[in-house]
Amino acid sequence: MSESNTNDFSAVNVGDTLKGKVVKLEEKQVLVDIGQKAEGIIPISELSNLHIEHPSDVVKEDEELTLKVKKVDDEDIILSKKAVEADAAWANLEEKYKNNATFETEVKEIVKGGLVVDVGLRGFIPASLVETYFVDDFSDYLNKTLQVKIVDLDKEQNRVILSHRAITEAEEEAKKQNLLQSIEAGQVLEGTVQRLTSFGAFVDIGGVDGLVHISQLAHEHVENAADVVAEGDVIKVEVLSVDRDNERISLSRKNTLPGPWSGIEDRISRGDTVEGTVRRLVNFGAFVEIEQGVEGLVHISQIANRHIGTPHEVLEEGQKVQVKVLDVNESEKRISLSIRELEQEQEEEQYKQYTKEDDQSSFQLSDIIGDKLNKYK
């Protein structure tokens, strides 16, 4: 081959770093003026560590580039832009990995199994390390900037594994510890029901879950937590206790709700007659539930219109009874009831009815007798 057809690239060696100016963008390569007789070539695969469709996605004409020599032969000098960037990126990443540093990166591709990000070279966030929760569709993450940490770095294998989940977990843990230190028994907070169990509901109160025991879900008896709340419900809860060492918080929904006694004096007044259910019999009387969660006492002296030895002689648990309200005290949660007074009133009413009927009968009899006497006259 004559000298006119042969390029002398003796001053250029594989591994060298040199400057070049972009002179032409072609579909699959870029031509660069590197001060030699022939222009250097950057294949599209050597332009970026990320997938690109066209060289114009990365460079433009007349742009000055720092390049690494990949191959030299009699015809061409093959150059790489991504190799220079990769060398700088590896040094930077190794420093970050050593210091367990947190940094930002942009999601460039959505691939099977996770996200490809730009960290100066191709980095990968596996799907399991993106969030603390399951993500079904990652399409919204494209071009999104994420805070990440490096979890695995291997230059020989060209492997950079990152985690956004680690950042989120660290933030959540810090938030959790701050909350554990700041909350106190008696505080009323808003929380979201996370999950239900046979013994209650776990509620997120801002970074940490507390337990609302089934006995603290409502004033009335609750058989199943799902009868009262559902996952996702936003509810108010009162902090009952905080165990910071074991990271346990006891909560009450019941204490934030109006109690069954609240406003009882507006609903029930002295002299009212109401129906109730006998719930408990004791030596001194019977407790009768007249509203859900509201029991009043019928003292033994108010059970019957005669002397009885024990309430069991007249009443039994579960029995429906009519009672008269003698007294209501909301602040002391006390209601006095009477069955005897109703019986007395009923007897008096019956007596009045009887005497009324008797008077009418007497009047009718005298009329009849009078008529008879008139006839005899």
Rank of each mutant, 00 (worst) to 15 (best):
E3W: 14
E3H: 15
S4H: 12
S4K: 10
S4I: 11
V14T: 15
G15M: 10
V22T: 05
E26D: 12
V30F: 09
V32T: 13
I34L: 10
G40C: 01
G40W: 02
S45H: 06
S48M: 06
H51L: 03
H51F: 07
S56M: 01
T66A: 04
V69L: 09
D73M: 08
D74I: 10
E75I: 06
D76Y: 14
I77T: 15
I77K: 06
I77R: 01
I78G: 00
K81T: 09
E85K: 07
A86G: 04
A89H: 08
L93G: 04
N100T: 09
A101T: 09
A101V: 11
F103V: 01
V107N: 15
G114W: 00
D118Y: 12
L121F: 00
F124Y: 06
F134V: 11
F134S: 13
T145F: 13
T145I: 04
D154Y: 00
Q157V: 11
N158S: 04
N178A: 10
L180K: 03
S182G: 08
A185W: 15
V188A: 05
E190W: 13
T192M: 15
V193A: 06
T197E: 00
A201G: 07
V208K: 05
D209E: 12
L211M: 01
H219F: 03
H221V: 00
H221W: 14
D227W: 12
V228C: 06
V228I: 14
A230W: 03
A230P: 14
K236P: 05
S241C: 03
D245V: 10
E247V: 15
S252I: 02
S252Y: 00
N255D: 06
L257A: 00
G263N: 14
G263I: 07
I264G: 02
V278M: 07
R279G: 05
F284I: 15
I300N: 01
I300Q: 00
Q302Y: 02
I308M: 13
G309E: 13
G309T: 15
L315H: 05
V328D: 05
R334I: 11
Q344Y: 11
Q346S: 10
Y354R: 08
Q360E: 14
F363A: 15
F363M: 13
I369Q: 15
G370M: 09
K372V: 15
K372C: 11
N374K: 14
Y376H: 12
